[in-house]
């Protein structure tokens, strides 16, 4: 993939990733964060959780990442939607973020989105 074709992973909380979300589309580039709940080496599939919300992660492209149940990870990749409306993130980048302050992360995300919206509206005005 050429670098110019790489899109940034839109920051999204798992709770905001439901079928009604505009981000819930095949091919959308996302960045998600959560605690590793399940991991199957055979299928290269992981599941992360954040509160009551879960997301499957396809980790077959992440050869150098050591995955440990209970640790917190951040993944960037593209969303795939199964016929049953189940979302799977095909990760191209992943990293361990044990020690991240998730409350601060979620609050900062709100501020960041607000700042981006204001910036865009300033440019339009």
């Amino acid at each position: 993939m050429s670098s110019s074709a790489i899109k940034h992973g839109v920051l999204v909380a798992l709770q905001d990733l439901d079928p009604s979300s505009p981000l819930f589309k095949r091919g959308t580039s996302l960045r998600v964060t959560g605690k590793l709940d399940e991991y199957s080496v055979e299928n290269a599939l992981a599941v992360i959780v954040d509160g009551d919300f879960k997301l499957k992660i396809d980790v077959k492209h992440l050869r150098d990442l050591n995955l440990r149940i209970g640790s917190i990870y951040q993944f960037i990749g593209e969303l795939l939607i199964a016929p049953n409306d189940e979302a799977i993130l095909q990760a191209r980048v992943g990293r361990n973020v044990d020690g991240i302050d998730l409350n601060l992360y979620h609050q900062s995300l709100q501020l960041l989105k607000q700042f981006q919206e204001n910036h865009v509206s300033d440019h339009v005005a």
Binding site: S3, H8, G9, I76
Partner: peptide
């Protein structure tokens, strides 16, 4: 986060930084 890297030894390293907004 570094999401792409291209090294040309002794010449340059090109890379992309993804901060979630661009």
């Amino acid at each position: 986060v570094v999401v792409s890297r291209e090294l040309k030894s002794c010449k340059f390293l090109k890379f992309l930084i993804d901060d979630g907004t661009g």
